[in-house]
Design a protein around this nucleic acid. Structure first.
Lengths: 233, 233
DNA sequence: CGTGTTTTTATGTATATACATAAAAGCATG
DNA sequence: CATGCTTTTATGTATATACATAAAAACACG
């Protein structure tokens, strides 16, 4: 038996991974149950459970009670992107971070924003636009609407030295959110701020966050042309 | 004490989440250790461990041995995108999937491809371009290079009825990969296939996969204009 | 022979306990 | 007082055990 030190859950996981990669267990195959694996590896069932659960979370195994555990037929690669505070993102790349407030106004929002935030169409909301810089070059343009009905404190902030991005994260909790990635052509205004040609292809990240049933903020972050978001799978 | 049924790890997790959201425990705060929480909730320490570990994986807590557990000062939102087989992606949206092979050739790859795949610049690789359709409309354009040195079997496939996307996933294992998201302007060729204006902003997903130390494939998937990738956080 | 009920079974989870390990803090020693 | 060793402590993990639960399979019954 080619069983290495599989007394730890990582050991079990490695051995299971090896068998999947070596196609000893093929996509779609039912694998032995936890008790059998525990016996084979000479460890306790919870140890096997920990290993298999973790692989299932990564999408490599599919588990169903009673039905057993099978190798995912077509594993769905899960790309986890870290959406950090933009300042940290810049600083982590070893660059100097800069910040410029471009606009701060309180006004009636476009209907797609008030609809997304679930507020009345006549509601006046806080609108903030800001440019994030990396080594003095435009890095990302943040276009944000804040639901001041739920976050009145935002009205007292001028967002000149701290970005809304950072202030909200520090001061306003949220329980859930939605995030969408898309490509968008730069508008004339985007182009002016990001210092790029109009209609450049920009990576756009749209976020909508909620605190229980109250919307908090809707934001679009447009990255300068050529920007990439990377991750391992 | 406002402690609900926290005898399960989900219960503990919910209560911890509530305290974080209610700012009873503020960002950066050190929270009580596992043993204390277990005592407070009237459950065993492993139950608390399970709850806190899971929250740490989601980025809401930061844990260090001996140092204790603290609420993440600036929680990094983790957006997990599911990168499935394109056919499934289309079918899951309730649309009719279509597939057209656009190109299949064996030739010397551009240097950025041979470099990425770690093969000699003179190596002839398999190049496949294919269009994925949703209800007969262009959905995504797949531009793929396959390392035939490591995956010779690919040469026997004509990829006319099954996409390289799907064939590889079913037949060639990989142990790790890299994925990058970006926005790109449509080239004349992209525009022709995707039936969109040249220079349209396209969402591009680039993947590079490896089986241990052997590269498998490098692929760029360009989605039709307006495409969004969404997820919850 | 189909349908509803019971049984079986595999995973899911909780617990008490024990030991491992990383790292901070304290202590000792030059 | 600085440096290196020791202790302490919080998390990390393993185990035996037990019970919960979902769902497939078997069964019974009209």
């Amino acid at each position: 038996m080619n069983v290495q030190n599989a007394q730890t859950w990582q050991g079990v996981q490695n051995e299971v991974l090896r068998r999947i990669h070596a196609r000893e267990w093929k996509p779609g195959d039912l694998i032995p149950n936890e008790a059998e694996l525990a016996k084979e590896f000479g460890c306790a069932r919870p140890t096997v459970n920990r290993a298999l659960r973790s692989l299932a979370e990564r999408g490599l195994l599919e588990r169903r009670r009673k039905a057993g555990t099978r190798v995912a037929a077509q594993p769905v690669a899960k790309a986890t992107l870290n959406i950090a505070v933009i300042r940290h993102e810049v600083e982590d790349r070893g660059a100097r971070y800069g910040y410029q407030l471009a606009l701060r106004e309180v006004r009636i929002a476009p209907t797609h924003i008030s609809a997304a935030l679930g507020v009345g169409v006549q509601e006046r909301l806080l609108h903030v636009m800001a440019l994030h810089l990396s080594n003095d070059m435009p890095y990302a343009l943040e276009d944000r609407w804040i639901n001041t009905v739920h976050v009145p404190g935002a009205l007292e902030q001028d967002f000149r030295s701290i970005s809304a991005n950072e202030w909200l994260l520090l001061n306003v909790p949220y329980t859930r959110g939605e995030i969408a990635f898309a490509a968008r052509p730069a508008t004339a205004e985007n182009a002016k701020h990001l210092n790029c040609p109009e209609n450049s292809a920009l990576l756009a990240v749209n976020r909508l966050t909620w605190d229980h049933d109250q919307s908090v903020t809707a934001v679009q972050v447009l990255f300068a042309p050529g920007h990439q978001m990377r991750t391992q799978i």
